Simulated assay, not measured.
Amino acid sequence: MFLYGCEEEIDSSLLEPYLGPIKVALDIDLYHSDSAIVRTHLKAPKQVEFDVGDFEFPEGIDITFFDEEGNITTTMRADKGFYIKKDNLYRGEGDVRVHNLEKDQKLSSEELFWDPNAKKIYTDKFVTIEERETLFNGTGMEADESFSEYKLFKVTNSRTILPGENN
């Protein structure tokens, strides 16, 4: 006796879990306060949320930091941004810029991380820092989130800015 069975082929891709976005929000304007004092202001044209709680800001992200009197101390912007929920960590990529308005220090890099818990920003990528009349270049940097105190690693090709050269 022979038994023959016909089994329908199943497309295995239909059984894979969906990993794409679950929500999309436009014109994000988010304030974070602590003890009734605004600490940060996040703005983004588009925010994409994923099932695990991560966010992507595909059209850019701007974060503004405030002191206890409500004055803007530092701004941070990136062409594209990410928030990793499990690490409570933000990552900016593309043209990333930080400006400490109090000390008039400017940073540019292709990638930068902001850790709100540790109140630090850092990268292991190439960085240019403009401070007063000097450009500092290096690979790797760590700073407090206000970018008022920083450490630049593997410093190379630092130089004085010539008159009329400022951007």
Rank of each mutant, 00 (worst) to 15 (best):
K46E: 10
E133M: 15
T64Y: 00
K46H: 05
D62T: 07
N88H: 15
S12Q: 07
P58F: 04
E165V: 15
E145A: 04
T139I: 10
E130T: 15
V127F: 06
T134Q: 06
L112R: 06
G20F: 09
I63H: 06
A36P: 00
G92R: 03
I63K: 06
G138S: 12
S108F: 06
E8Q: 11
G138Y: 12
L135A: 05
H99T: 09
R159D: 05
V96Q: 03
H99I: 13
G81L: 06
Y4E: 14
D115K: 02
H41C: 06
D115T: 05
F136S: 04
D104K: 14
H99L: 11
K106C: 02
Y83G: 02
A44K: 11
I28E: 09
H99S: 03
W114D: 00
K154G: 08
D11Q: 10
V24L: 03
A118R: 12
G53W: 05
D79V: 07
D124C: 00
E145G: 00
D27G: 07
K80N: 12
E93A: 08
T128W: 01
L112K: 03
T73D: 01
M76K: 01
K103P: 01
E69N: 11
D79K: 13
H32M: 06
W114F: 15
D144E: 12
D79H: 02
V24S: 12
T73E: 10
Y83V: 01
D54S: 05
Y31N: 09
K86G: 01
D54C: 06
F136N: 03
R159L: 07
K154H: 11
T160W: 00
T139P: 02
W114S: 04
R159W: 02
T160K: 13
V52C: 05
L112H: 05
G81I: 06
Y4I: 15
S148L: 02
V24N: 07
E149G: 00
F55A: 03
T40Y: 04
A118M: 15
D124K: 12
E145S: 14
D95H: 12
Y122Q: 01
L107M: 15
I37M: 08
G81S: 10
E111F: 07
E8R: 10
I84P: 02
F50R: 04
A25E: 14
A78P: 00
P58L: 08
V38K: 08
L135I: 15
A44Q: 05
G138M: 08
S108E: 07
L152Q: 07
F82A: 11
Y18F: 15
Y150M: 08
E16W: 04
N71G: 05
A78K: 02
K106N: 08
H99Y: 10
G20P: 08
E93G: 08
G5Q: 13
L14W: 11
I28A: 12
G94S: 11
E145V: 00
L30F: 04
E69C: 00
D29V: 13
V38E: 14
R77C: 10
K85I: 08
Q47H: 09
I84D: 14
F2K: 14
L107N: 02
E9V: 13
